[in-house]
Design a protein around this nucleic acid. Structure first.
Lengths: 217, 217
DNA sequence: GTCCTAAAGCAACATTGGTTGCTTTCTGCC
DNA sequence: GGCAGAAAGCAACCAATGTTGCTTTAGGAC
């Protein structure tokens, strides 16, 4: 549904307020980001897609960065919230998988690239906010595991979260490769093994041994 | 030294061949990438910086991607080669640190972002080539360690390399934070501990224990 | 030495991206 | 109901980005 369908593309203040136009423009912006990346972002094309005059876009979002920031913020409502079972290993795999799926689509990949390509403090802040805005992100799962006593108290949830998420982004964005469940499982197991936490499901023989090592972590 | 200084900015075929012009333009391109990132890349500005007419640039590199690709390839000769001591942990820390230093400068960061921003197969291939073109990259160090018998044969050097490098890029490019030696040391220790390889220098008490776990990896 | 071609500069042109002034229409207030 | 202001469209305009035709110079083949 284009703005034309709403406003009849006639002049003057829109009928039901500006909300519809804002939504259409930001949707079009995300689409453009997904299709052409940050380099090929054209405000005119966005306006055309949204069925809106380009001055309406320029007046509301003076710079390209403003537009991208606003569009990225709408992503917050798209992020899925996975639920927590209490099994740390499985929960971590699921949380990382959710990110991988999001970033793994062509659209997601381009948007993630766009996020990074903007060497802009405010965009960085938005990325930060997007990372924090759901409960099922790894560092929260790790905090819960510590509270449950599944992990020692002296480990750093943030660091651990980085170790888990970084390879996913690295492979997808830097190496242009894919990640599958097997890969993610391997990363999680590897990191958990390093922690000396409950060992990987796949290698129960190691569990007792690595649990011993916990005191060293 | 500008092209004007070489060619006297006069018309016609250049005196000593085109090599000087190519070099000046690609240098200017890297400078632009480092200063303004991929979004603010202006061919005219590059031509001006190089002291060359813009048509000379457009005729040789028809698209912006061509220019960026060519410029990135020249980076190959800039990468420092660190030497290998045979102590895996220290060698890995040094190798990862070398990358972190390269990517950690404002220029390096912008260039790395530029590499990623191009959702372009050829640029990806160049990034790949750049990663492979020196000996002191983690996966080579790991291969050597396996040959020496310091690591079991059944581990995947590529995967391990990813686990080590990814957090550095993630922190710098995604989170806009810095990495220091301590952080890198922590990552290396964590990954090595997970491998069950010789434990981290900082916790000799764990060495024997984690070495035992090697058979499970 | 002459001629042909490659490679560069120059300038004019076209296209695109962004800006501004003006008009039109809706909303809220009196 | 009339009026002020907000918000949008339209069109003209300016600047930056690419493109093309032409000219100039160097190097190599004959």
């Amino acid at each position: 549904m284009s703005a034309a369908a709403i406003s009849g593309k006639r002049r003057g203040r829109p009928l039901g307020g500006s909300a519809a136009i804002v939504r259409l423009v930001l949707e079009a912006t995300l689409k453009q980001l997904g299709d052409h990346g940050v380099a090929g972002l054209s405000v005119e094309e966005i306006a055309r897609t949204a069925g809106v005059n380009k001055t309406s876009v320029y007046r509301r979002w003076p710079t390209r960065a403003d537009l991208v920031r606003a569009a990225l913020l709408t992503l917050r409502d798209e992020l899925p919230a996975t639920q927590e079972t209490g099994n740390l290993r499985d929960d971590l795999v699921r949380a990382v998988e959710a990110k991988a799926i999001l970033v793994g689509t062509p659209r997601g990949r381009k948007i993630a690239r766009a996020m990074m390509a903007f060497d802009d403090a405010e965009v960085a802040a938005i990325v930060q906010a997007l990372r924090e805005c759901r409960y099922s992100v790894p560092h929260v799962l790790i905090e819960h595991a510590i509270e449950r006593g599944d992990l020692p108290r002296n480990i750093d949830p943030e660091l651990l979260s980085e170790l888990l998420l970084a390879p996913v982004y690295y492979r997808i964005l830097m190496l242009n490769e894919t990640v599958d469940s097997r890969y993610i499982g391997g990363v999680v197991d590897q990191v958990l093994a390093g922690l000396g936490a409950a060992a990987a499901r796949a290698r129960p023989a190691c569990a007792a041994q690595t649990a011993e090592a916990t005191s060293c972590a």
